[in-house]
Simulated scan of single mutants.
Amino acid sequence: MASLVQRIASQAARTFRNTKNPATFQQQLIKLKELTRTLTADDINFDVDLVRDTRKFNPESGEAPFTYIGLWEDKIFSMGVFVLRSHTSLPIHDHPDMFGMVKVLNGSVNVKSFSKVVNNDGTDLPKDEVMSSTDRVLHRVHLHGTQKIGTSDGVCVLDPLNGNFHEVSTGETPGAFFDILSPPYD
C-alpha cells in the first residue's frame, strides 16, 4: 500500500489537474484536505532536531530564520515543509493565481490572511487605500482571517481569491508545516 504522503501526492494531482469544473474540483479538494489533515511528522520522517532550538531568533546571527525542504514538484503542484524558528515569520506575500494548503507538523503557526479588494467588474479598487505591496504592484486588501494552527488542527486553505495574501509566523516556539502549492512556481 502507498504511504500517506504518496496518497496525498496522488490526490493533489487529481485535484489540481483540472480546476475548470467547480463541482468536481470541490469534491477532490475535500478529499485532499481530509488526507492532508491526517498527516503527521512521522509520515514524512521529519527530523524533529530541526525544531529543538527554541531560542528567540536573532537576525544578527547570520542564520536563516526558516528552512524549506522540498518533497515533490511537477507542473501541477509542489509539496514541501517549512521550518520556522521561534519569533520569526514568512512576511506578507501572495501566490498569484495559486492554491495553497498548510498542515502543521510540529509546534504551531499563526496564519494571517488577506484578500484583495476588487470592484464588481473584477478590477482593482483605486490604490489610494493601499495596505500591501508585492512585486512593486500595489493592492488594496482586507483582513480575511487570523488563526493559530497546531498539529491537531485541520488544513488551512488559501485560494487565488480568498486569503491569498498571507503571513505565517511563530511565537515562543518553532513551528514546521507541510505546504502544497498549485500550480507551483516555475
Rank of each mutant, 00 (worst) to 15 (best):
T36H: 01
D53C: 07
F77T: 02
E167L: 13
R14I: 07
T134M: 10
T19L: 06
R140E: 13
L39D: 03
L29G: 01
G163P: 03
Q28W: 02
S78E: 11
T170M: 04
V104E: 06
F177L: 10
G80W: 00
D97R: 15
G163D: 07
T151M: 13
N45L: 13
P59N: 05
D135N: 15
A41W: 01
K75T: 11
S133C: 12
K116I: 13
G163C: 09
I149N: 06
I92S: 10
D42W: 02
P126A: 10
S89V: 09
S10C: 07
E167N: 13
V117A: 08
V111G: 07
M101Y: 06
I8N: 00
P174Y: 03
P174R: 01
F77W: 04
L35Y: 02
N162F: 08
H166S: 04
V141G: 04
S108E: 15
V48W: 06
G70Q: 11
H139K: 12
G107I: 05
H95I: 09
F178Q: 01
M101W: 10
N21P: 03
T170R: 11
F77A: 06
D42R: 10
V83R: 00
I8T: 04
E129V: 10
L181V: 09
S182A: 15
I8E: 00
T54P: 03
T88K: 05
T24R: 10
L90I: 15
S169G: 10
P174K: 04
G70S: 12
R52W: 04
V111C: 11
L125W: 01
P96F: 05
T123A: 09
L4D: 05
A176V: 03
E73Q: 15
Q28I: 00
K33W: 00
H93V: 06
P184V: 00
H93A: 03
L181R: 02
T38I: 11
R140C: 12
L125D: 07
T19A: 02
V168N: 06
L84G: 05
H139P: 00
E129Y: 11
P65F: 12
F25L: 08
P65A: 11
C156Q: 13
D53H: 07
I69A: 05
P96K: 12
F82G: 01
S182G: 00
D121F: 03
S108A: 15
S78G: 13
T170E: 02
A12R: 02
D42A: 15
V81E: 00
F46D: 01
D74G: 08
A2M: 14
H93M: 03
N18H: 08
H142Q: 14
F114H: 13
